[in-house]
């Protein structure tokens, strides 16, 4: 049993448990806030993307392409280090705010794609029937299209939420304290990478499994509706 102790010293992990618990909590709430913001951004961008005004449409797709074709880490750097040096703007943001903004902007582009696909998957006959009974654009959207789109959108949104939770680990690079930073703390204080990173991996796996169960459950429920 001696080798286990030297490979993974659980007493050190127990000693650092409060730090891991705090990190876990930070990861959960940072992801939740970013998820809500990204859904708002995604909805707005989708509306812009589907509008008939050319400039709105084009700027929405430019935003989506720019986000999708560049790494999140670079986006985090641009927002966190870049924005404060823009002349005249002088917008100093903390690592936490900068990180959440970057995560939300990144995820928002993917959410926009998901929401648009969900709306487009609603059969056009639904729109036509709603028009035939004399519904306005707003009525059609709110009462006919969006409820059906919601069912289409929910599974991929949960998938994107899983991606977002994993992506939030990148914030440790700009010194936000979350789950991975707890592992980095053990690495720097005790030089014990195993205790740090394996514990962190188990933490992320636990969150992932909860999300997985949630998405299987919703898929089953939605399958019942359709």
């Amino acid at each position: 049993m001696d080798w286990i102790f030297s490979f993974y010293n659980y007493r050190v992990v127990a000693e650092y448990l409060p730090i891991f618990a705090n990190g876990m909590w930070a990861t959960v709430w940072i992801s939740t806030v970013s998820l809500v913001l990204s859904l708002i951004i995604g909805t707005l961008v989708t509306l812009a993307h589907m509008s008939h005004r050319g400039w709105l449409n084009r700027s929405a797709s430019a935003y989506i392409e720019a986000i999708r074709a560049t790494p999140l880490l670079v986006q985090i750097y641009v927002i966190y280090f870049g924005l404060p040096v823009v002349p005249l703007l002088d917008w100093r943001i903390g690592a936490l705010q900068g990180g959440i903004i970057a995560l939300a902007l990144n995820s928002g582009a993917y959410m926009a794609e998901i929401i648009r696909a969900g709306i487009e998957a609603v059969p056009s006959s639904q729109t036509e029937s709603a028009m035939a009974v004399g519904m306005s654009y707003r009525q059609r959207m709110v009462q006919v299209i969006l409820p059906q789109a919601f069912a289409n959108v929910l599974p991929p949104v949960l998938g994107q939420a899983i991606v977002l939770i994993k992506d939030s680990s990148l914030l440790s690079i700009i010194t936000v304290s979350e789950l991975l930073s707890a592992g980095l703390t053990i690495l720097s204080e005790r030089v014990m990478p195993n205790e740090g990173f394996l514990t962190v991996a188990v933490g992320y796996l636990a969150i992932y499994l909860v999300m997985l169960v949630l998405s299987v459950y919703t898929q089953r429920r939605l399958g019942g509706i359709r």
Binding site: F7, S169, L187, N194, F197, Y208, L212
Partner: peptide, 23 residues
């Protein structure tokens, strides 16, 4: 697949680079 999908890539790279050599 689930083990690798359930952990961030940043954690995976740390494990490969820091944890594997300790074996």
């Amino acid at each position: 697949v689930h083990m690798l999908r359930g952990t961030p890539f940043l954690v995976q790279i740390y494990i490969v680079y820091f944890v594997l050599p300790t074996t």
